[in-house]
Design a protein around this nucleic acid. Structure first.
Lengths: 211, 211
DNA sequence: ACGCTGTAAATTGTATACAATATACAAAAC
DNA sequence: GTTTTGTATATTGTATACAATTTACAGCGT
């Protein structure tokens, strides 16, 4: 499925494929990523392998220790809190300012998707989640604020795969999302911001239970 | 002056020296940074030169166009506004939450520095500015929010060197800073936040005049 | 004079070879 | 048995060689 995307360079291709593995949890936190290994897996030389690792370091998904190598980033409970709090602050800041810019039609579409995905597979649920937050982010007129918010979310992504959710959890999360969408549709700004914040912190708490 | 710092690798050393040149405006916006040139200047091979360029891309100070090379980032008037607005939002968000955490003693020290640097050289003025904003940033209990705020500021740094300020401008900026410090010392939170925001937007406007 | 085309030069992307350092493990000292 | 130390191995950091692509420019035609 990644095959369709044509990359400019091998480095980019290796980067995207490693990124995918990290996000999907196939590479676990703390795992060593040696350059030779990557060369072997993807059939490239060390140069693009190294560059791919540097890009993952930029995303904070990999940590490089000089002369010792690269490791999939590890997050303790405190850092998870910190990341989600930061995300919460940014998204709420955006929503407070961009509330009026959210398109009702996309919101309604999302609501339909959400109702369809209810009681369905987890993948669809994640897609709806991403769309909802992306809709919020896009409401900001400030591209840089958008970018750093996406950056924080990218950092959080792998965490979700390291945790399995109960169907109860999933249902609760879905209903939180529905509430947010409804508040947005009803033009209830303050409520929407509050719910969005609670939803994000809630996500943090569920992840921390596992750790 | 950079010589004192011992770096782990050549790549890091080249990175820091290029960074310095960009921030000081010795490398102008849009300028081509070919790998061979960098090799020649710093006496290293292409590998560390390339890696240094990648690090500058991470900082958004350099833009890489595939198969065409790297160029010092260029900012149009709109992007400058956007960057400063983003910075303003982040610093104000931090100050609103971290107001109580700002140390009075460091603030008083800074005030002394500011009064000493008044009517002195521009370099000292810049140092006071950095300290003030760093003091605000450190007041946030959230390390990630701190980091992304510093990231935005780093992106803005070169802009200042591309503009020469009149002594009137400098005096005005200094007085703005003093007002902020006084508001912080007087525990006038709302006023401090408002002044901080105005100060940052003011900085943006002064830069845009040139562009 | 202007624009097109093709070839040569220059530059980036990739692979590989070499150097410096860290890791692992075995032997010796306690 | 534990710790230390030295050597071999493995891995990262750096340099260089090769491939692919872009850029520059001369030559040609109109």
């Amino acid at each position: 499925m990644d095959e369709k995307i044509k990359h400019f360079s091998l480095a980019e291709e290796v980067y995207h494929r490693l990124l995918d593995r990290i996000i999907k949890g196939k590479l676990k936190e703390g795992e060593k990523l040696s350059e030779e290994n990557i060369c072997g897996i993807f059939g490239v030389s060390r140069t693009p392998a190294r560059e791919a690792l540097m890009m993952l370091c930029r995303d904070k998904l990999v940590k490089r220790i000089p002369r010792r190598g690269c490791f999939v980033s590890k997050f303790d409970s405190e850092e998870i809190s910190s990341l989600f709090e930061c995300r919460g602050m940014l998204e709420c800041l955006i929503l407070e300012q961009g509330f009026e810019n959210i398109h009702r039609d996309e919101l309604l579409e999302l609501k339909t998707d959400l109702e369809k995905s209810k009681n369905k597979n987890r993948k669809q649920s994640l897609e709806v989640d991403e769309k909802l937050h992306e809709l919020v982010i896009e409401s900001s007129p400030n591209k840089h604020l958008q970018e750093i918010t996406r950056q924080i979310i990218r950092q959080i992504k792998p965490l979700r795969s390291w945790r399995t959710f109960s169907s109860d959890d999933l249902e609760k999360i879905d209903s939180e999302r529905l509430d947010i969408i409804n508040a947005l549709l009803a033009n209830e700004k303050k409520k929407a911001v509050r719910l969005l914040h609670e939803h994000i912190i809630q996500g943090s708490n569920q992840l921390k239970l596992k750790t």
